[in-house]
Nucleic acid binder design. Structure first.
Length: 376
DNA sequence: AACCGTCTCAACCGCGGCTTA
DNA sequence: GTAAGCCGCGGTTGAGACGGT
């Protein structure tokens, strides 16, 4: 592949917003001569812009064929339908909507539809309702992130420059971040327990060998801790940390009220391919189910007959919360936590810190719980 | 009125595909 | 076959608008 042609910021070419004079020059030239070669156009039209910038300005704004104003209901439906089939192929979607540009559709999708679908409890990428399985997946990742973070914390505490105030401060920050991960873990469990139908929880518990279910929450919590270092944290022995450090971490754990028993189930309408298949084929055998599960890519395909209720849709509230949390976690790559080198001033837990500190304070999490958990 | 956070959307950037020599 | 040049796409950014406090 060849090198990219330089764009815009070299040879004194202008960038940024277009002036009315520039617009007029571009429109005049294209109306007289057509755009021809975009690369050659700016010079011929007397513009100090690159061809790419001219093409974009014309295609997305100046072209008189562009339709302005709000998207009609019909247009919105077409966009949703096409996006479900095509994904983010904005230019292809735009080709089905005369007068609309790919950029306009993309912006509209990102600012309106995405939010709208999330509020409806529909995943904007897959166009399927989120299930409680999604929440379980998020939950099951937390222990790994905790382990990575804790390992770095342990490295910090044994660093040769441990006596430096800088490292002590970093360590203090890191312990609070770890504590907040545990809080997040607890929030997720509460969300799940508050929104999942009891039949789903029972099935899950049965699968993991809990024959009687006196306290759903307790069993689920223990299950989720099985591969977690949270348990070790509570025992005061996390990944070789000195006892005083784990004691400090424990003291940082906010003391929120324990979860209360859920009251009601949520919408159990079949909403994805496998659910519809199952509801239409109540007499299908395990083999059929396995084939169907593989076809619809629902994990775990080899155990689908043991999860008759695991396909129940999560509530819109649950979906929204899962998406919010996923967005926070995905936008901050926890696995990239690095120890600070002596030559840098970056903080050890910057990625983790961003997750928790952007919304800042404990009050944010308190509000989060008040809004999303306790009220459920 | 001032400040702050959120939303919107025009514009930019980097990449990859296609065409041409 | 391949290197160079151009174009278009999708993701991202950031300035301005807007609304709430």
């Amino acid at each position: 592949m060849m090198g990219r042609s330089p764009c815009c910021n070299e040879n004194g070419l202008k960038k940024g917003p277009w002036t009315p004079e520039e617009d007029q020059k571009l429109v005049d030239y294209i109306q007289k001569h057509g755009h021809g070669s975009w690369r050659a156009l700016p010079k011929l039209a007397g513009l100090k812009r690159c061809g790419k910038s001219c093409r974009l300005r014309w295609a997305n704004y100046l072209n008189p064929d562009i339709k302005r104003g709000k998207f009609s209901e019909d247009e919105q439906q077409i966009i949703i339908n096409l996006h479900a089939v095509l994904g983010n192929k904005w230019s292809v979607i735009a080709s089905h909507l005369p007068g609309r540009t790919d950029n306009e559709i993309k912006n509209f999708w990102n600012t309106h539809f995405k939010k709208k679908l999330l509020q409806m409890g529909i995943d904007p990428v897959t166009h399927r309702r989120r299930t409680h399985h999604d929440l379980i997946n998020v939950l099951s990742n937390l222990p790994q992130w905790l382990a990575a973070a804790a390992a770095n914390l342990a490295n910090l505490s044994t660093h040769p420059n441990w006596d430096d105030n800088f490292f002590r401060l970093q360590h203090s920050d890191a312990t609070q971040v770890l504590a907040k991960i545990q809080l997040l873990h607890n929030i997720l469990i509460q969300v799940l327990m508050s929104t999942a139908p009891s039949s789903y929880i029972e099935t899950l518990m049965n699968h993991f060998g809990c024959s009687s279910i006196p306290d759903h929450h307790q069993y689920l919590y223990e299950f989720l801790q099985m591969n977690s270092n949270l348990e070790a944290l509570e025992n005061g022995s996390i990944i070789g940390l000195p006892p005083q450090i784990t004691a400090q971490m424990q003291s940082n754990l906010p003391n929120y009220e324990v979860y209360q028993q859920p009251q009601s189930s949520v919408n159990a309408q079949p909403v994805n391919g496998l659910e519809i298949y199952m509801s239409n084929n109540s007499d299908c055998d395990d083999h059929d189910l396995q084939l169907a599960a593989e076809y619809y890519s629902f994990p775990p395909s080899n155990d689908i007959h043991r999860y008759p209720n695991s396909l129940v849709s999560a509530s819109p509230e649950c979906c929204s919360i899962v998406s919010q949390i996923e967005n926070k976690l995905n936008s901050n790559d926890i696995s990239n936590c690095q120890l600070p080198s002596s030559s840098t001033t970056s903080t050890t837990f910057e990625p983790l810190g961003d997750i928790m500190e952007n919304e800042a304070s404990d009050s944010y999490w308190k509000d989060f719980i008040d809004e999303h958990v306790v009220s459920l």
